[in-house]
Amino acid sequence: MRRLIRFAFDDVRPADEEVLTRMGMPGDAPVAPAVRTLLDDALEKIAALAEPRGVFQSISKADYEMVYRGEGRNAAESPLELIAPRAEALALFVGTIGENTGKEIRTLFRKDDPALAMMLDAFASETTNRVAEALSRTFLHELHGQISAAARVLPYSPGYCGWHVTGQRALFAAIHPHDIGVTLQPSCLMTPLKSVSGVLVAGDAAVHRFRPQWAFCDECRERDCGPRMASVRS
């Protein structure tokens, strides 16, 4: 199964609170009128500029194991080594919001408007994450009737949770996301920058559950595994 999907911006629009959280604001902090204006201006820009799209492609566990192994630079032990073998279905994915938003962010910095540039960047990063979530929902929908009713889909990406970023090379070689305009640089950087890649894992809440006690967890700045696991608990 391979699906290429173009999303409407409203399908992947992050909540204002998520954008402000990415900007370092606690959820209960009051939002000043000037910050609200900044948020509204950034929203107007990204709604006009984002071209959210993505592709996913089913993969067998055996083939995924080869992709995951990549160049042999993963952590000695990692959550995905436990999660993927227990999955009910797997799919590689790549998503993006396109290049236009990134260009506008650079233009705003050049025009000496870092405030709007940073807010737009936060919006763009959150929107990109929402693309991965939208692909997860679509994959789950496509699997309807083939997997257990309790199954939920979560995306996992190279560069996180012990999956070394060089794993991008094997992933891209397997999925070839040129049809959505995403390419991989020699440094394993994706262009457009506001892109996301990885594996979609379908399984019940227990499949996605792990204790964040690996060595790499200490240096993790995301620390979103708890909320992610909670999100698939029924």
């Binding site: 902090a29 000043a32 000496d112 405030a115």
Partner: peptide, 14 residues
């Protein structure tokens, strides 16, 4: 205060 406030101050400084 938080990052957006700092950025607005930086904009005023500029």
């Amino acid at each position: 205060i938080f990052l957006p406030d700092v950025l607005l101050a930086a904009r005023a400084m500029k």
